[in-house]
Design a protein around this nucleic acid. Structure first.
Lengths: 243, 243
DNA sequence: TCATGTGAAAACGTTCACAGCA
DNA sequence: TGCTGTGAACGTTTTCACATGA
């Protein structure tokens, strides 16, 4: 019912697209701790999925493993980047510079591949003008004045619920076609706009459900990691904020 | 491969469990704005899914619709609550009271059904003792001293990445079996522990992918909402923080 | 007449099991 | 020997299409 030629190769199923960045993070941590070759079994244990699934997922990108030994971590990371198009580096705008907006700006800019926070917006005079990580918080009105080239491709909404729809409308109006909504509010946007929610209450509810009925999704290979802790954090001491 | 009798009725598929809280939120907003009867078509448009899917999902809970008119919003909310076991009200502990922890504590306690934030932890002396929404932030060491009855069922990790694994270990040790991890770090926990990640970088990467190939998941009924905005936020003015 | 509820079919995703290669 | 890559089997989820009932 379509036949999208897109960029090249096969076609990566939605489910796989969601898992690839997860593998990538795991790989990055393994590489950081000195591991260079990883087997599908190890990756699976850490990602809490089935090893066959890992192999299927990765085989969609090409044949990058070495039979008998495994995958080269650093190389795989690059391949996943390529497959996800994380070389595009989309500019991200964060709207709503409260606690959440700050936390995301401080963590996200560096944690994420393929994206960088390029602009911060708010309307509170107490916040507009403030500088975070070298970026000035601007008034929402200015978003319309940006040169087309400077406009964000992705909008992150971290406003209070009551402002979220209005913000979404404005972002859509200036051409944003991908939204990540942290506000606990249902948004109505044109169908061409990609929209994802990050909703604590939904997450907690789902966790609560599986807690009530320990029957949850995906078990399996995870038991492996009970015996073989492949990654262990080192240091001791004090948590206090997101990086 | 199982045969869990669980609580009662059929068995709610994983995919549906994830959607139910979404419907619930939509219903809550519709009810709040005065709509009392909702059709599967409307719900579908707002949830950006197919109408048949909505009907299948809801029919798993029982036959609560009225042919010819639709579903009663308030009633459906209650039914979903019942089906998800959101009447259990699990106690949630938030560990890591930085910007993110604060934002979640301020929003979550009230936004979420079936859960309530019951304790806040950190180890930073500058933060321990502070009061947020009437709760004192306690030192992480005290978690082990809690009476079993007072112990959290769900742990939310909002520490820096480097502390996340250690915090997870402690939470698991005191009996927490559901974790929600906001730290950008892969965690290793026993297989009986439910673990969900909320990872901005993954979310952005997925959005970026679909942006590059507008071929995304689930379109369909959404086009409907281009013409019929069923919910529209009201007020004007200033975003600044999560509720 | 209009929208639910549901079998049956199609699409999709996962897992198995093993051939093939280092 | 050990682990990848993959057809084929299986299970789940989605979608269709329509009988059913308010």
């Amino acid at each position: 019912m379509n036949g999208d030629p897109g960029t090249s190769s096969k076609r990566i199923p939605e489910a796989t697209v969601v898992r690839l960045p997860v593998y990538q993070r795991i790989l990055a941590e393994l590489v950081r701790t000195g591991v260079s070759t990883v087997s599908s079994e190890q990756l699976a244990a850490l990602a809490r999925v089935n090893a066959a699934k890992v192999r299927k997922d990765l085989s969609l990108l090409g044949s990058f493993g070495t039979r008998g030994s495994g995958y080269d971590g650093a190389f795989l990371i690059a391949q996943i980047d390529r497959a996800l198009g994380s070389d595009k580096d989309w500019p991200v705008a964060v709207v709503g510079i409260g606690n959440l907006g700050r936390a995301l700006t401080n963590s996200a800019g560096f944690a994420s591949r393929g994206c960088h926070v390029s602009a911060l917006f708010d309307v509170d005079p107490a916040v507009v003008g403030e500088e975070i990580r070298g970026m000035k918080v601007r008034h929402m009105d200015e978003i319309a004045k940006l040169r087309p080239a400077a406009r964000p491709a992705i909008g992150v909404i971290t406003t209070p619920a009551w402002a979220a729809q209005q913000v979404a409308d404005i972002l859509v109006q200036v051409g944003v076609t991908s939204l990540l909504n942290f506000a606990p509010r249902v948004l109505v946007v044109p169908s061409h706009v990609h929209l994802r929610y990050v909703d604590l209450s939904v997450e907690l509810q789902v966790l609560g459900f599986y807690r009530a009925r320990p029957n949850g999704p995906e078990r399996g290979a995870a038991a492996e990691s009970d015996r073989v802790p492949l990654i262990r954090s080192v240091g001791l001491s004090a948590p206090s904020d997101l990086d």
